[in-house]
Simulated assay, not measured.
Amino acid sequence: MDLAKEILKEHTRRQAVKIADYVGDNNIRFKALVDTYLKGPYRITQRGAWPLSLCIERHPDLIKPHLKKILRFLHQPGIHDAVKRNTMRLLQFIEIPKSLHGEVASLCFQYLEQKNEPVAVKAFSMTVLSNIIKNEPDLKKELKIILEDQLPYASPGFTVRAKKVLKEIA
């Protein structure tokens, strides 16, 4: 399967699932998907983020050799919201190595503090932070302050997730 062509064919759930089904738990195919996603161009990266996150939801261990590259990619300027959203989404399905807790937590806090960040990016960031806090309880206070500050002005989606996370970390 030519992953780039398949990614560009259409941007639907059916197509994302088709690509994820093709990759399955195959490390070589997953590496090809990651390489295609990182190489771009922009539209392939944007659309490739969805099947990438579906693969990790199904097979979390596939990400291990690629996690650092994917995290580094998020630091590039002008990253599409779909890339941030799906990367944060996939991070909630894995056990993040302790050595990357700081970097991932920093990204999550950055997304939460940005006023113009989409609700989905913030919601997934909350969940990822909640998972990290299980091993890094010192972050609990900072997350609590940020969420409580934003709750009075937040959208319903943010409010629901924030209340759930606040309950989990209490």
Rank of each mutant, 00 (worst) to 15 (best):
L129V: 11
F109A: 09
K68T: 09
Y153T: 09
T36N: 12
L8I: 09
E95T: 15
P152F: 06
A16K: 04
K64I: 13
E142H: 08
A154S: 15
Y153F: 07
R85M: 13
E142A: 11
D61L: 15
L90S: 02
L151Q: 09
N27V: 11
K69H: 11
A82F: 01
S155A: 10
K18S: 12
D25T: 14
I63E: 01
G102L: 02
L100W: 07
Y42C: 05
L100N: 08
P118F: 05
D35W: 01
V119M: 10
E168H: 13
L129D: 04
Q46R: 15
E57Y: 02
F30M: 08
N27I: 04
P65D: 08
V17W: 10
K84V: 13
T45K: 08
Y37W: 13
K141C: 05
R161V: 11
L90Q: 05
A82H: 01
P97S: 10
I96Y: 02
E6W: 02
K164Q: 14
L129C: 07
P60N: 07
V104Y: 03
L166M: 11
K98R: 10
R58A: 08
R14T: 14
T45Y: 00
N27R: 15
K98C: 00
A49M: 06
L52N: 02
V34A: 02
Q15P: 03
I94L: 09
Y111P: 06
K68C: 09
S99R: 13
Q76K: 15
E6Q: 12
G102P: 04
S130Q: 15
K141Y: 07
E57M: 02
K122T: 08
L74C: 12
E10M: 14
N26D: 15
I145K: 11
G102D: 14
K84G: 03
I79P: 07
K5R: 14
L107G: 00
L147R: 09
L143W: 04
I70Q: 00
L147T: 04
R85Q: 12
Y42T: 14
L33F: 02
N131Y: 02
E103N: 11
